[in-house]
Amino acid sequence: MRLLPAALLLSALLSAFHARAAGPMKLADYLALEGPAPSAKIAYGAALSQYAELFLPQGTGPFPVAVLVHGGCWTSKFGGIGQLRNMAGALAARGIAVWNVEYRRVDEEGGGYPGMYLDMHAALDALRAQAGRHPLDLARIVAVGHSAGGQLVQWIAGRARIPATSPLHHPQPLPVRAIVSLGGLADLRGEAALIQKSCGRDTVQLAGSPSAARPDVFADTNAAELLPNGSRTWLVTGELDTISPPRVAHDYASKARAAGDVAEVVILPGASHYDEVAATSFAWPRVLQVIEQALELAPPRP
């Protein structure tokens, strides 16, 4: 594992100290997050939101890969890919390549169901193509999603279980079996009331409308319906998260374990929904530890 230079380590420790002293992050703090420019921007479709940013570490590689999927309540009103550059830059400094994904949201043309999910397919297909052009080790890959992005990365883990009759079926999806969900709202069926309360989103916006050909709209959209899928999921949630409270992580983990998958809950003491996703937060060292553990770069925490 790559070690930080002493000056950078001291800077990170001081930032964490000041962040803790300032208290839990709020939405305005999250929206102000920024990070370095990417190494490349790659379109995976014709729409303005169909692209991903590639961050390459220094060195020759091959590098493990973190796929980042931002949140924002599935809308374009609460930031997105720009805020995740903060985390992307920090991961690249640790020797981890980053694929930072933008996608069409429910308030954009073509977003919601099925476009948002098809964008995940296309973004991961594009990542697979980039592995032939850049030193990327796709045998070591983790998908990291925040809030609404947590729902999408948890769905990614179960893509192979989607029936061939579904518009979301992919015949050969890139396998992603390590998942880190940061304050994720993944259980569209079980958490419908919370999703409406926290984000103002209705089932039809995220899962489509029932039809004769598709009577159960959760069968191909809900991560909890696509268990077991052979994944290992870390559900990381701030102790003070009110958008996706710790109870949500524990409930999903119980479902995953009951189905036969591996799931671990990590609660960040004193942290909010926004501390979960910021490399400038006092909670970042624990989040980083989870990501590196998922990539088998760090030993499991005792």
Results as ranks from 00 to 15, higher is better:
residue 3 L to P: 11
residue 4 L to Y: 08
residue 5 P to W: 13
residue 11 S to R: 15
residue 13 L to H: 14
residue 15 S to L: 14
residue 21 A to W: 11
residue 24 P to Y: 05
residue 29 D to P: 01
residue 36 P to Y: 10
residue 39 S to M: 06
residue 41 K to C: 07
residue 43 A to N: 15
residue 46 A to F: 13
residue 46 A to W: 12
residue 54 L to C: 09
residue 55 F to C: 05
residue 58 Q to G: 13
residue 62 P to N: 12
residue 67 V to A: 11
residue 68 L to R: 04
residue 68 L to S: 11
residue 69 V to G: 02
residue 70 H to E: 13
residue 71 G to N: 02
residue 73 C to N: 07
residue 74 W to P: 00
residue 75 T to H: 09
residue 78 F to C: 00
residue 78 F to L: 09
residue 80 G to F: 04
residue 82 G to P: 05
residue 85 R to E: 12
residue 86 N to R: 00
residue 87 M to K: 04
residue 87 M to Y: 00
residue 90 A to D: 12
residue 92 A to P: 00
residue 93 A to P: 02
residue 94 R to K: 15
residue 96 I to T: 01
residue 109 E to R: 08
residue 117 Y to C: 03
residue 118 L to K: 15
residue 119 D to S: 09
residue 120 M to D: 02
residue 121 H to K: 10
residue 122 A to C: 04
residue 128 R to I: 03
residue 132 G to M: 01
residue 142 V to I: 07
residue 145 G to H: 06
residue 154 Q to H: 05
residue 154 Q to W: 03
residue 155 W to Q: 06
residue 162 I to D: 01
residue 165 T to I: 08
residue 171 P to A: 15
residue 171 P to M: 11
residue 173 P to T: 14
residue 181 S to H: 08
residue 183 G to Q: 09
residue 184 G to V: 14
residue 189 R to V: 08
residue 190 G to M: 11
residue 192 A to N: 12
residue 198 S to D: 13
residue 199 C to K: 13
residue 203 T to P: 00
residue 205 Q to H: 15
residue 208 G to F: 03
residue 209 S to I: 05
residue 211 S to E: 02
residue 211 S to Q: 11
residue 215 P to K: 02
residue 216 D to Y: 12
residue 216 D to C: 01
residue 219 A to E: 14
residue 220 D to K: 07
residue 221 T to A: 03
residue 224 A to I: 07
residue 227 L to H: 08
residue 228 P to S: 05
residue 229 N to D: 14
residue 230 G to D: 02
residue 237 T to D: 00
residue 238 G to P: 02
residue 246 P to C: 02
residue 251 D to S: 07
residue 251 D to L: 01
residue 252 Y to N: 10
residue 254 S to D: 08
residue 259 A to S: 10
residue 264 E to R: 04
residue 265 V to P: 00
residue 273 H to Y: 00
residue 281 S to G: 02
residue 281 S to Y: 03
residue 284 W to Q: 04
residue 288 L to G: 03
residue 288 L to P: 00
residue 296 E to V: 13
residue 297 L to W: 09
